[in-house]
Design a protein around this nucleic acid. Sequence first.
DNA 1: CTCTCCCT
Length: 810
Amino acid sequence: MAGSGMVFWKPGTIAPGSLVDRVPSSSSSTSLASDGRDAVAGGSIAAVYNPNSRLAIAEQRSRLPIAAVRSNILHMLEQYQVLIVVGETGSGKTTQIPQYLHEAGWTAGDRVVACTQPRRVAATSVATRTAEEMGETVGDLVGYSIRFDDVTTPGKTKIKFMTDGLLLREMMATPLLNQYSVIMLDEAHERTIATELLLGLLRKVLRKRPEMRVIVSSATLDAEAFRSHFNLNTDASDPSKDTAAILTVPGRTFPVDVQYLSQPTPDYIKAAVDAVMNIHTEEPAGDVLVFLTGQDEIERAITLLNDRVDALLVDAAAAKRRYQQQQQQHHHGDRGRLAAPPASYMNMRVLPLHGALPFQEQLAAFEAPPRGTRKVVISTNVAEASVTIDGIAYVVDSCHVKLMVYRPDAGHESLMIVPISRASAQQRAGRAGRTRPGKALRLCTESDYCTLLPERSVPEIQRVELAPVLLQLKALGIDNLLHFDFLSPPVTETVARALELLFALGALESNGRLAIPLGIRMAELPIPVMQAKMLLASAELGCSEEIVTIAAMLQVQNLFSSSASNRDASGSDFAASGNAVVDAARSRFGVTEGDHLTLLNVYLAYSQHGVGQHGDKWCGRMNLNPRAMQRAVQIRHQLMRYLTKFGVAIESAFGKHRSRNSQSRNPSDDEATAAAQTIRRCIAAGYFANAARLKPDGSYRSLRYDLDLAIHPSSVLYYQVTQKLHRPLPPPKYVVFHEIVQTTRTFMRDITAIEPEWLLELAPHFYQKPAMQAVGPSSSSVEPGSVSASLLGETWMDNFAVSRKKPRAL
DNA sequence: CTCTCCCT
């Protein structure tokens, strides 16, 4: 048999390595024949040394469901320019189709086969697996390309896995994607924005490159929509002229028995806990995966579950004692009826899984439990598609998800808990059937499942703010957005809002064309549009050094995190103490100017103490997430390269304010204040459209859409203006903010204090002074921010305040 | 008194 220690080589070539452990056997020679055939067809594998056993791989390859349609795929690609492959999970399409294409000669010459993935981990892991199957090292014949990690060799790499967003970026440099002979859009049914745009753009490219081929891998539900999107045949009566076709490949997963509640539940967290306990006491061994919507729900469920397990163990111990006593009495001649021996239960290990967890704690959810222990992973949506946990036999699904939805009527995003789609529910249930038959319980009634859940999820492009998307399209030469072939057209009002913003930022001319060079540069920068504007404005304000750092820091999430040990040490209540630790960590770097300068502080401290030998320890003490910081460093380098490309000098705000003699010493307080002011002005230059003014009641009002806003509790300003400080500071009169998120209230996140005059100076096209100034001193003699709102009342403030000009119709 | 999840 082909053990994993065996070594095989292609017949007719010189075998590499030592002969010591090479034991020919009859079974290996038969399989070598089929193996050899593939290798010859590939034409590029010279000698093969594969410690993972090339033979076993060849057998596995030929057994995959997709292998049965290998020749169909290759033949259909001769006839049709676009092929929709409907392949259920486990069909092997992702790893096999690129290999088939390579073997069939689609990579001859300089040509490359590309396969896009919605996620970075998928691109890397699938590349690794494909390379292994081909007996290659990743980066040679098979490579991958994701942001900050390009593992390909130009001229040598023939099969390239990449994120969909990166291929979209490549189109800016090479609009016809000339190096690629075939592009496979994998997981297209997920409808990420990048895939959505690629679908529209490739339709154009295919007309100009008749020799090119596109493969779209999709779930059943969307296949016909993809086919008609790409089919250029207008004559429905003559299918022989079709240019796109659908091919269905069976999947290979195990059956999952799906069950529903008999009654709807008012509390799916409690229902989930009941369900897990039921599985634990009634069902055979096998791990459980529970889908809830967020961190707080997960922590609540964990507490409830651990209590229930404790109670169960106490009960079981008591039952065992009673039973033993009964048995003893029985032996002593008591003739009473004997109870059945009490059930003995496995141990249970309950683990959380969500994005805010430190990396080490995330890993715990993937570790196999000890023998005799049942693992229960309580997860957010990450476990639906982004990661796979081995050994799951039971799924408990709340049938809800937390979703960010842009609301054009309100002009901001909303983080809502909504029912999932039936497509999502199927995907979640499938997580129980990857290695053996499984069971799934949906925490809703079957009739609610059929009537209340939508068939499929709303594509991302229909629920996000569109400014970056439209800017990208403009930069790719799509001037008339109305004529672009969106598979799912975006919401008209969202388009209007986005164009309005792009115009206000100066990225678009009044005729709707991309402004040169500002619009092009903003499109090139891989950051949100307001930050791109801020970064480019820093060139004129002389603070690019600091702004590039702030821009990089704004890109990373979960900067602060508290490890389990921190939480345990600091208090009894799991969730609350963890938050307190994070709050304390944040306040350590906090400055009164707000979150952007706080982020700058964090970065400066990190670059002094957080790198090198004891760097991670320092991060641990500061409750900083080292991976997030490393990513910020990478992003900062990338942004620096863009600035260099644009010819922007790297200047420090401190350099500007420091006198010639004082280069060596630390800046004085005055100098620091002046530098901070320059930086805040620059922040306002990018974020001017997101400005808010303090009201007498202590809340804020946005200038653009007249919304009532609150400071998000993650902001240093929240910390400073509440009783958390020994002596709370007065809240700033005017602020700009990075984003609005509506959850329990409408919050501003990432906030910086500004002066209102800056809005008039930096964005005179956007803001005006009010015509009427009823009461109080003239605006030029008194700084508005210095006037106490509570003293003078809101009417005065309103009359005095800077206000938003009427938006210009586009 | 808060943090679904991806991507350039």
